[in-house]
Design a protein around this nucleic acid. Sequence first.
DNA 1: TTATATAAGACTTATCAGGTCTGAATAGGG
DNA 2: CCCTATTCAGACCTGATAAGTCTTATATAA
Lengths: 155, 155
Amino acid sequence: MPAMQVSRKVDYALRAMIYLSFQEGGQPCSVGQIASDEGIPKKFLEKIIQDLIHHGFVHSTRGAQGGYTLARNAGTITFKDVIEAIEGPVSLNVCVGESGERSDNICTLYPRCAMLSVWQEAQNRVMDLFASTTLADVRTRHGALPRVADDVVAG
Amino acid sequence: MPAMQVSRKVDYALRAMIYLSFQEGGQPCSVGQIASDEGIPKKFLEKIIQDLIHHGFVHSTRGAQGGYTLARNAGTITFKDVIEAIEGPVSLNVCVGESGERSDNICTLYPRCAMLSVWQEAQNRVMDLFASTTLADVRTRHGALPRVADDVVAG
DNA sequence: TTATATAAGACTTATCAGGTCTGAATAGGG
DNA sequence: CCCTATTCAGACCTGATAAGTCTTATATAA
């Protein structure tokens, strides 16, 4: 019952994209390879990757020796891109629109809804991070994000 | 299909608490009064308030002329308190524990899970905000949220 | 021409958010 | 003391959806 949690789909999608970013320039990776290395149900991942293809993030090669590669440079694909491709616009509360502005629902009825600005601020904080973190960043930084510093298990 | 969205329960709980904070020191408010003023289903709100009572945030007076009041000073109750009372610990992804540390699941199997630090950072950003925003803050500031983080516990 | 891939999309299933309903127990006013 | 306004406890309902499976096609290297 964890609150505000991202779906498995998004987690799997990001893991798969990062996986592909490590192979940039090399052979295509098959869905079976990614799925088993990352511990993702194969058929499920197949569907998720289709989404990513339709959004232009992944390129596919059919047939034997086929598989997937990144369609764009890892440095140009942000967490925000992937999250929104898979889940649609993020909004921490119904009253907050995708870009942190006020959306047109109940809240407008209550001028006294003092919460709005809090949700907006929260949303801006996370989206700023997701929009400024690329696949290349995590590939490179590997856990050394500003402010998070410690453990993170190098392997 | 909005991503990472907080439940209606949390939204309702916070609205109700803020409502009560405006009445601090006055008569108890009935559930019907809060529900109709805030546009919340009455019976649903009744259950939510029970949760808040059991967590020590709200005090109830039974019988005619009864109702609810804040059990603690509005300046001592944070968004984080209310969110966690209603929804349990927040974790933006399965691999991130309640306080931003690493939790013991799949992620530990993959030393290469470079995402972890990103989720931790995102979680820290929102939780810092929620932990430093009290009911009194929103009551006072009323929509003019300036980077927050100033006076945590006001009177 | 076959073994190995992806492509598309219908289907399944269990959980749960978001509520409702019932029937208490409690307290003030007349 | 009874009536009415209120909270309290918990069983119950219900539609949506997350997470995943199954099936059948299509493409291609060797």
